[in-house]
Structures are given as structure tokens and as C-alpha cells.
Amino acid sequence: MAANMNKLDLRVRDALSAAEQRKRDDEAFVAGGDAKVWRSAPSAGVSKLVAEQLSHIGIDADALKRERAAARADSERRLTTQREDAVANSGGRAESVERILDDFRASFDDLVVSPGEATTHYQTLDSPLQIWADDGIDLESSSIQPYRSQAKVRMEASYYTSFFDAYLAGEERLLHFQYLWGNPRQDAPAVLSVNAVVALNGFCYAQSEGGVTGGGSALLDLEPTVDLIQAWTQPISSVPPQPAQSYRVARVEADSSGFFNDDQTTYAVVYRGVAVGCEQVFVPPGQYLIIDVALRFYSATIDGKVNADFATGLFSVQSPFVQLVVVFP
């Protein structure tokens, strides 16, 4: 990252730093403003009372606990088997993703025209300037190289309670790949169409705990996004949102809510590429646009947990390139 950053003038470095701080502030605000519900904890005798009532109707509370523990152990074994199978196949899936990305890039490269006086230009940004992650995402490693930039990350979220005690919360965390484009013309604005490609190869799961008097739930959404940050505004700001700026590629959800429900485990092998983008983006003469390509992790848990693994084996999150159509009116 340092080599790329050192090539930039102070104005651009300041803009990138401000953009990162703004994203962190925005995401801290979202996390701090999540809806929360807190139910008062029961008195010390409630659990005993429940056990007594179960006994009255012929249910052995201790036997029920043992049965649930055995079922959870079996569920963990099956989940481990599925995860190991996904890891074993991560190399083949990575090669397949590379072939798809190569074909996609080649189809766009065929459109490239010589700059000259043409009013429409096709450009590919093949490397981000920096890769970083919000708190709550374990960024194990990252690499920046043409058409091969990637990050290896893990994310886990959980919240467990006792009996009626419950906490409802949604948490949003992002992994960022930040690109930069500057309008080379000092005498004319540019109008851009931006398409950012994100490729995922990983394994995710959600687990919820069942219970006699009410179980939990767990949800995880994965959503590639692109945010276009206008470095020339004071303070810096994003372009107005457009529908194609984000796309949910996966949701894993487990739900054990209700009475006498079992634990539930849901998993997904996440293996796909997607393009997100914006159209008709105005960039003034000589100004810079920061293109923030991100993978959004949204989780909500009550007596459950979610886990996303994009680090084991050849698992990864890739942001290989951003494609631009630039028009000088």
C-alpha cells in the first residue's frame, strides 16, 4: 500500500485519509444506532420453577439438556465436515473464478479506444490504492497487485443470553478496497459509468439455539457495494445512491424461535462474482473520485452466532478491477 500511496500528492493523500475516517465514523454511527430491546432478567428462582413445571407434565429437564447437548455435538460434526469439504474444493473454485474474471476483463478490453480526441474512453483500474477493514473483521492478510488484489478475512458475531434475557442488534461491518480516478482534463468535466467487480470464495454459517421456553435466531447477509466519494467537496461526500450500487449475494439464517424448538444450523458455500456500479457520475475538471468497493457483512443474533470464513485454504475476497466508461461532453 505504501508504494502506491507515495505516488500521490498531499491533496489526494489527505482526501483518502478523510474518506477512510468518514467511512469509519459512518459505520460507528450505524453500529451505535442499532435498535435494541432488553428484557429484564428473571429472578433466581425462575429456572427452578420451569424445571418443576416440566416435571409435572412428565418431562425430565436434565434428560432434555443431555439430548440437546448430544444433538449439538452431532450438528457441530456435520458442520465441520461440510466446512472441510468446502476448504478442500477452494482451490478448484478459485481457478474457476479466475477464468470467469479473465473472460469478463477481456470482453471489456475489446472496447478500448485510443485516447486522442475521442469523447468516450474505456478504462480499467487494475489495483486499489489501499485495503482495510472495520473493527469486528479479522483481516488476516491482503495483497495489492494488478487484477489479483485480494483479502483474507474472517468475521464472527454472537450473542447468548439466559432464559428471558435477550438483546436484539444488527451490526454492519465492511471490508474496503479503495481506488482512485482523476479527471485528466483541466478544461472539461467528465461523466463516468463505474462497474466494480467483487469475487467471493468462502464458507459461512448461522447457528441458533433452541429451547423449551423460546429459542434464538441468527442472520448474516453478504453484500458487495460501491460508494463513490467526491474528494472535491467540503466536507467530502458521496454521490447520491443508485439501485445498482449494492447487491446481496448470500444470506444464511437460522431460526429456533418459539417454544420447544431445536437448534438450527444453516451453511452456505459462497462462490461467485458480481458487479456493482453507478452511472452518470459527474467529476469536475482536474478533480479526483475515490471509488470505495466494499463487502458488507450484516449480522443480527439472539442466542446464536454467525461466522464467515474467507481466509482458510484458498478462500478469499477479491476486488480484481474497476471498469470505467468516461465521457467528456
Rank of each mutant, 00 (worst) to 15 (best):
M1T: 09
M5Y: 09
D9M: 04
L10I: 11
E20V: 14
K23H: 10
R24C: 12
R24A: 14
R24P: 07
A28I: 07
A28T: 10
F29R: 15
V30F: 12
V30A: 12
A31W: 08
A31F: 07
G32V: 04
K36W: 06
K36Q: 13
R39L: 13
S40G: 09
V46K: 01
S47A: 14
L49M: 06
E52W: 02
L54T: 02
S55M: 03
H56G: 08
H56L: 15
L64T: 00
A69K: 13
A71L: 11
E76Y: 11
A88I: 04
S90I: 05
G91A: 12
S96W: 08
E98H: 15
I100T: 11
D102M: 03
S107F: 04
F108R: 02
D110F: 02
V113E: 08
V113R: 01
S114N: 11
S114A: 09
P115Q: 04
P115C: 03
P115E: 09
P115H: 01
L125H: 01
D126F: 05
S127N: 13
L129T: 13
L129C: 14
Q130D: 15
I131R: 14
D134S: 14
G136C: 09
D138E: 15
E140V: 10
S142A: 15
I144S: 09
Q150I: 14
Q150K: 15
A151Q: 13
K152S: 04
S158Y: 10
Y160M: 10
L168Q: 08
E171K: 12
R173G: 04
R173L: 05
L174H: 09
H176R: 15
Y179W: 03
L180F: 04
R185Q: 07
Q186L: 10
L192C: 04
V194E: 00
A199Y: 11
L200D: 01
G202V: 08
A206H: 07
A218P: 00
L222A: 04
W232D: 12
I236C: 10
V249W: 03
A250G: 06
A254P: 05
A254D: 01
D262H: 12
Y267F: 12
V270N: 06
Y271V: 05
Y271S: 07
R272K: 14
C278E: 00
E279C: 01
V281S: 03
F282K: 01
F282Q: 11
G286R: 14
I291E: 06
F297A: 02
S299D: 04
T301Q: 14
D303V: 04
N307T: 12
A308H: 12
F310T: 10
F310K: 14
G313M: 10
F315E: 05
S316H: 15
P320C: 05
F321P: 02
F321E: 00
V322G: 03
P329F: 02
